[in-house]
């Protein structure tokens, strides 16, 4: 059965409360024995003497959601997971705030460590999301993932 393509994007930063609520929602799923979480946080990089104050994210949303979907399907095929959730910010996220939240759960720990690594690397490499690094003087530069 073809599963529905979910919308991964949220407006602005992902709050610690949202993350805590996501964890709480899994307490009823008692076949789960291990969770692993990746949180991407905006760094105050210094570039040519100027400090990053935030990142303004934009995306090719339709394709990005399609890519997130493909990554999700590939991950479920390779690893024995109970569930997986991915959220990514759009728009402005200040330094120190969370812009990516990946949450994987499984009966056992080994699967979540490996699956999480796979998912995050695939997101960084393939998903058409574009971060504009903003400086205090209103200038900016486009970020490139390394």
């Amino acid at each position: 059965m073809e599963t529905k393509i979910k919308n991964v994007f949220v407006d602005g930063a992902i709050s610690p409360e949202f993350i805590a609520n996501s964890i709480a929602k899994h307490q009823s799923k008692t076949t789960i024995g291990a969770h692993d979480i990746f949180l991407g946080q905006v760094r105050a990089d210094e570039i040519d003497g100027k400090t990053v104050v935030g990142i303004d994210y934009s995306a090719y949303e339709a394709m990005a959601n399609q890519k997130f979907h493909e990554i999700r399907e590939a991950t479920f095929e390779q690893f024995e997971l109970s569930c997986m959730h991915i959220y990514h910010s759009l728009g402005k996220v200040g330094v120190g705030e969370i812009c990516l939240f990946v949450f994987v759960s499984s009966p056992h720990r080994k699967e979540v460590f490996e699956a999480l690594h796979y998912v995050v690397e695939a997101i960084k490499k393939d998903v058409p999301v574009f971060g504009k690094e903003l400086f205090a003087d209103d200038s900016y530069q486009w970020k490139v993932n390394t």
Binding site: Y60, L100, V127, V129, G131, W142
Partner: peptide, 26 residues
């Protein structure tokens, strides 16, 4: 049409075509 395409891929005016510079999600 929402997939990365190789240079050999044929295109026509009905396709949804997009330029994707280096990505920087996460």
């Amino acid at each position: 049409n929402n997939s990365y395409a190789e240079d050999e891929k044929e295109i026509n005016s009905f396709d949804e075509i997009a330029l994707i510079p280096p990505v920087s999600g996460g």
